[in-house]
């Protein structure tokens, strides 16, 4: 399920999942937890500053804490996840829009087999400034130290850049990797 936080590319996330053959649905972030029936959740990006405004992010916190399925936060979803779990998010010193080079520091599940540096598409004024406890960084860019993060043991991921955008290299592979994580988690 794609949780809609009002991003310009929310519908793209749905499209990439559908293109990869996953059954997918966009729902508002105010959907009650009991109606969230999915094998994995994507917390979408949002309109300006929404990632720092817990109220505008609806029930995203509940989904992270209680849905029991893998969750990936993108842009505002990523920032919210960090702040919600005890890290920090705030205004970027240098906001990034459009084409950015992202260096992958740790392939983990999400970036398995990808080149060390990829072209990624960005659109953010804010970013994660401090990781939550038990999270590790996976990627960075010149202007943003935490382009990707992951929980050490739980299937929780955050990406500052937008893998769903056509111009991001290897975006489909990242979504496929997340689908694989969801399928593996379902079997456990």
């Amino acid at each position: 399920m794609v949780i809609d936080n009002g991003g310009q590319w929310t519908h793209r996330e749905w499209r990439v999942l559908r293109d990869l053959g996953a059954e997918s649905e966009i729902v508002p972030n105010t959907t009650p937890l009991e109606n969230i029936k999915a094998d994995g959740l994507v917390l979408s990006g949002g309109s300006p500053r929404v990632g720092l405004n817990a109220e505008a992010m609806g029930k995203c916190g509940e989904y992270i804490d209680k849905s029991g399925v893998p969750v990936i936060g993108i842009c505002a979803g990523h920032q919210f996840m960090a702040a919600h779990l005890g890290g920090k998010a705030g205004p970027s010193k240098v906001p990034e829009f459009g084409k950015t080079l992202v260096s992958i520091d740790d392939e983990d599940d999400l970036f398995k087999g990808l080149p060390p540096t990829i072209v990624a598409w960005e659109s953010h004024n804010d970013e994660v400034t401090e990781l939550p406890p038990d999270f590790v960084p996976l990627a960075h860019s010149d202007n943003c130290a935490i382009q990707a993060m992951k929980h050490k043991t739980k299937p929780l991921y955050g990406l500052q850049f937008h893998p769903e955008v056509e111009h991001t290299d290897n975006g489909y592979e990242m979504f496929q990797a997340f689908i694989d994580v969801c399928q593996a988690h379902k079997k456990e």
Binding site: D4, N5, G6, Q8, T10, H11, N29, G46, S47, P48
Partner: peptide, 14 residues
């Protein structure tokens, strides 16, 4: 098509 209503905004979307 999709970009028409996405970019037109509404609700949370700018």
């Amino acid at each position: 098509i999709a970009p028409d209503w996405i970019e037109s905004g509404g609700g949370l979307r700018d």
